[in-house]
Write a protein that binds this DNA or RNA. Structure first.
Lengths: 216, 216, 216, 216
DNA sequence: CATGAATGAGGTTTCATTCAT
DNA sequence: TATGAATGAAACCTCATTCAT
């Protein structure tokens, strides 16, 4: 974890282990108080370490942010990967419906982190930001693969797959970013339902889908 | 401007004027460095005021954020209102196309501010946040009116007007929030084109629109 | 009032009038918040003047303290003088009893000011402090005169008149300074009763006094 | 020392030690300049600490005042306790004479602190003020015990023991508070002599005391 | 490996005083 | 006379980071 981050230890395994521990410990703190408002003292306390010891595994406060973001994003992306791969046996349309459903719910569950991600990425150094953004990009890629499958079967007709993939991700994230507003309009269930329809309508090819009709 | 914010002056006009000046002066600074990373000293300098004088018109650093956000959002919302009202003579479909185009371009122009808005709203006190969010809500409302017009003419068929209005706003904002990713996929022109199609497809009623026919 | 304090006005009468106004206006503010915690802005507001105008009649913040103390002490000393002179027709012992009673009650009424006086004298410049202390000294002098009368009639037998005079003043002040403690022991009435006895016992000559016994 | 005051250290012994050091270092500074006129920078310097380090052991400037007052008052009260208990073998009258003598001299020696105490208690928060005042109360209590002993032996005849105890304490304090005036009337030796007489006269029972007889 | 006392620059805020109007 | 906008030094306090133990 966190290659390139300064450490005084030469035991790579231990460093990885401790950094994972840091990532897990610090997440609720960061999400609740914000990165800027959290002090090193609080971080160390949350990690059950002394400040000096914390600096044994990191180079500076920023590194804690990077480690935490990297870890959480890694976790989040893996979750999405699992969701998508577990739908591989379904038809693209059905898979998309299910993936959107689960992705939106996962994003809702990690809602505060999603917001945190948009808010605090700016506090990362360019290098660290690149790493985080690569992970984010890989998230979109997963959706692209799914959409691509639908295009090949002819169920979807899409001009720009990356853009549609982005739209799906964005729409999920927006539930987290604007829940204060969207929550007044509809429930998460409604939101998922509507947005799924919205997406399907816009990418549906004329070709009959295998969806509901086959189920009967 | 900024009713409820402490000032030592009883000259309302002057206070308004100075606060507008502050809002304008501080915007580029905030957008570039972030609210938390900008010191009062820098703010005062950017405003061409002494620190003491700055505090003559505000109650604390937070107020500068509120004033700036309120001002910029006010400006932005007014722009959108103008865009929408100037399209009143067009058919709903044509109006939507044009409004999306101009809204996305305006959002792109104010791109850094849009990102700033999502990042820094958390630093406002509940009272101030409410004011800002009310303005944001009024933005969505403008789009709702336009969509409603389209539903009445029968050109649009929409389950949840607020949700579609939100989606349009969101999609515009996302160009600002994720330009680092979207910029690699397509240009702003492409983005507008695709997203417009995307929206229209999903809300098109079967009824023939006046659009295509006129183009011929 | 406040000779030697800088003013830009050459109209002596006006200056005196304004300073008296300042003294009266500022007293409750000072007593409530303390001198150090009261700002010039608050002082000016309490006086119904602008800050600039206030500085037309004073040389600095300290002068406000001096003016206020001088005025209040002047008022207080005059009160005591009246009390003492109005008892001139009584026998020294009876006079003392009555004077102590009224002096203690007056001090109790001005209790916060008495405390303020002990707390804030240190904030005066040496010159100003001398003026204030001279007034304070004149207070003790009034009691000395009364005691002296009693010694001449033979009712009192006192080694050091100034000391006894001081003790009386001190005992009165202490009710104000330590009301938080004394208030738990007894009421003001009790306090007056006991302290009067205490004083009388300690200065009584063997000679029969004209007191209560004669009254019957 | 100073339970309830924020510290970043969990080493109680160290905290106590440092706070005692702070109390000792800051006393002459506070007494000379007053609490309000002494800056944190000066306090830190007087303690031989950096400002940051000072704040490692205290929560705010006020805490320094509390710590210092508590420490000095503790010291002062202990001194009085020692004085009183060391006179236990004497007759109440002789004990009182000796205790007053030593108490007044001790108060004179700590004169500036006594004045400081009356001036600056107002700057404490209610909680801290209570602590300080409890200590002050315990001071009076020591005198009450002594007076009580005298009443039991029949040497003293006192209506209100607490009040007489207070008067003794007050008279001692007054030498400190009004030395600028009293110093012109008599020396400390004279003051002690007179005030002792004054007290004894007012509490003497008719019963012959063991005092004079023993002297012969 | 581990601790936490120590640093000091820099943060936000206040306020007595002046001066152009 | 009268106003109050403007100044800027100095106040209190925080915190990322280091280093002796």
């Amino acid at each position: 974890m966190g290659k390139g981050i300064r450490t005084f230890s030469s035991n790579e395994g231990l460093v990885s282990e401790r950094r994972e521990h840091i990532a897990k410990s610090v997440a609720p703190l960061f999400v609740r108080k914000g990165y800027g408002q959290t002090s090193i003292r609080e971080i160390a306390k949350a990690c059950g370490m002394s400040m000096g010891h914390l600096y044994y595994y990191i180079g500076g406060k920023e590194d804690v942010l990077q480690i935490m973001m990297d870890y959480d994003l890694h976790f989040y992306v893996n979750l999405v990967k699992k969701i998508i791969s577990s739908s591989r046996s379904l038809s693209p349309t059905e898979a998309l419906i299910q993936v959107i459903d689960q992705f939106f719910r996962a994003t809702d569950a990690a809602g505060d982190f999603t917001l945190f991600f948009y808010q605090e990425t700016k506090n990362l150094q360019p290098d660290a930001r690149k790493i985080i953004m690569d992970r984010e990009r890989s998230l979109v890629l997963e959706f692209e693969k799914l959409l691509y499958r639908g295009c090949q079967t002819g169920e979807f007709q899409i001009d720009s797959i990356p853009l549609v993939a982005n739209n799906i991700v964005i729409t999920g994230h927006m539930w987290a970013l604007r829940r204060w507003l969207l929550g007044k309009i509809c429930s998460l269930d409604d939101y998922i339902q509507c947005q799924t329809d919205y997406v399907l309508k816009s990418i549906a090819s004329g070709k009959k889908t295998v969806l509901a009709s086959n189920k009967v």
